[in-house]
Computed example of a mutant assay.
Amino acid sequence: MKIKKIYNNNIILAEDVGQLEHIALGKGIAFNKKRGDVIEKAKIEKLFVIKSDQTMNQFIQLLNEVPVNQLELTNKIVNSAEKELQTKFNDIIYIGLTDHINYAIDRFKNSVPVNNALLWEIKRFYPKEFQAAMHSLELIKYYENILLPEDEAGFIALHFVNAQYDNEEMTRTIFTTEFIQDTVEILESHFKIQIETNSLNFGRFLTHLKFFINRILDNELEEESDDPYIYEQVKKKYSEVSSCVDDIAEYTQKKFHQPVTVDEKMYLTLHIQRLIK
Results as ranks from 00 to 15, higher is better:
2 K>A: 08
7 Y>H: 06
8 N>W: 05
9 N>A: 15
14 A>S: 15
15 E>C: 11
17 V>N: 08
18 G>R: 15
19 Q>F: 14
22 H>E: 07
37 D>K: 09
38 V>A: 13
41 K>Y: 03
45 E>N: 08
54 Q>H: 12
59 F>C: 08
65 E>D: 05
66 V>D: 00
68 V>G: 00
69 N>E: 12
70 Q>L: 15
70 Q>R: 13
72 E>A: 06
73 L>D: 01
74 T>R: 00
86 Q>N: 14
87 T>H: 05
92 I>N: 05
95 I>E: 00
95 I>R: 02
100 H>K: 06
102 N>M: 02
107 R>M: 04
108 F>T: 03
111 S>Q: 10
111 S>H: 13
112 V>E: 03
118 L>N: 01
119 L>S: 01
124 R>L: 12
124 R>K: 09
128 K>Q: 06
130 F>N: 01
134 M>C: 13
135 H>W: 00
138 E>M: 07
139 L>S: 03
140 I>D: 00
140 I>R: 00
144 E>V: 10
145 N>L: 13
146 I>Q: 02
147 L>M: 12
147 L>W: 07
148 L>M: 11
154 G>L: 07
154 G>N: 04
159 H>G: 03
161 V>W: 01
162 N>E: 13
168 E>M: 15
174 I>H: 11
174 I>E: 07
176 T>R: 11
177 T>N: 11
177 T>R: 03
179 F>Q: 07
179 F>A: 09
180 I>W: 02
181 Q>Y: 10
183 T>R: 00
190 H>C: 09
192 K>A: 11
195 I>V: 14
196 E>D: 13
197 T>K: 08
198 N>K: 12
201 N>A: 10
207 T>N: 10
210 K>M: 15
211 F>A: 10
212 F>V: 03
217 L>S: 09
219 N>V: 09
223 E>L: 15
225 S>P: 03
226 D>W: 09
232 E>I: 06
233 Q>H: 07
234 V>L: 05
235 K>F: 04
236 K>S: 08
237 K>N: 07
240 E>S: 15
241 V>P: 01
243 S>D: 14
253 Q>Y: 10
255 K>P: 02
257 H>E: 13
262 V>N: 07
262 V>I: 15
264 E>K: 10
271 H>D: 09
272 I>E: 01
277 K>D: 15
277 K>M: 15
